[in-house]
């Protein structure tokens, strides 16, 4: 690495006493330095990449959920990729509240229709992780606080989400994420 740092032709002092003249030695230093840098990178990358999710972690990437036991107004938590996912059966009132909000009133503007599957708008599926610093917001259990907008309330730093899982009160910057999922039948979804 030291080589590659001192290899810049214009800064080296020995090898070309005449000043800024570029010599063959400068060229060789530069090539050797660049080669060493590529070599070090090639060795370091496997070490760095070994810290990324391993194949078995990636393999555990889909979860099936049966929706029939969830009554309107209730929500459950399932685990997908080690994260909590909220599956909420919304009441007509909650759906209407979510749809009627003006997009300009939102911190992270997104229409409710973009967050649910067409024809299944009573089902809201979101990753139950606050987009601020990763806490699990409260609001699934009947006794939990749901915040001013009737969705979820994060106990860590006070973020609040509405019935579409959209952030309505900071510090969270983004809406609760919608995971990739599909309806296998009308009463069963597959997340992932």
């Amino acid at each position: 690495m030291a080589d590659s740092m001192s290899a810049t032709p214009m800064t080296g002092t020995h090898g070309h006493p005449s000043g800024g003249e570029v010599t063959k030695r400068d060229f060789l230093k530069l090539v050797a330095g660049a080669g060493a840098a590529v070599g070090v990178g090639a060795i370091v990358w496997p070490l760095v990449d070994s810290m990324n999710p391993a194949a078995d972690v990636l393999a555990l990437s889909s979860t099936e959920v049966t929706l029939t036991p969830i009554e309107a107004g209730q929500a459950i938590t399932v685990v997908w990729r080690g994260k909590p996912v909220f599956v909420r059966h919304r009441t007509p009132k909650e759906i209407k509240e979510a749809e009627d909000v003006k997009l300009s009133a939102l911190i992270d503007p997104q229409a409710d229709s973009a967050r649910v599957k067409a024809g299944h708008d009573q089902w809201l599926v979101v990753i139950g992780i606050c987009t601020h610093l990763g806490c699990v917001p409260l609001g699934n259990a009947p006794s939990d606080p749901r915040g001013e907008w009737g969705g979820w309330f994060c106990p860590c730093h006070g973020s609040q989400y509405d019935t579409s899982g959209r952030v309505r009160h900071g510090p969270a910057p983004l809406n609760l994420a919608v995971p990739p999922y599909a309806f296998e039948t009308d009463t069963k979804i597959k997340i992932g």
Binding site: M51, N52, P53, A54, R81, K83
Partner: peptide
């Protein structure tokens, strides 16, 4: 994700 080596602390 890289720090975690997964999709959550695990």
């Amino acid at each position: 994700t890289w720090l975690w080596g997964g999709f959550s602390v695990d």
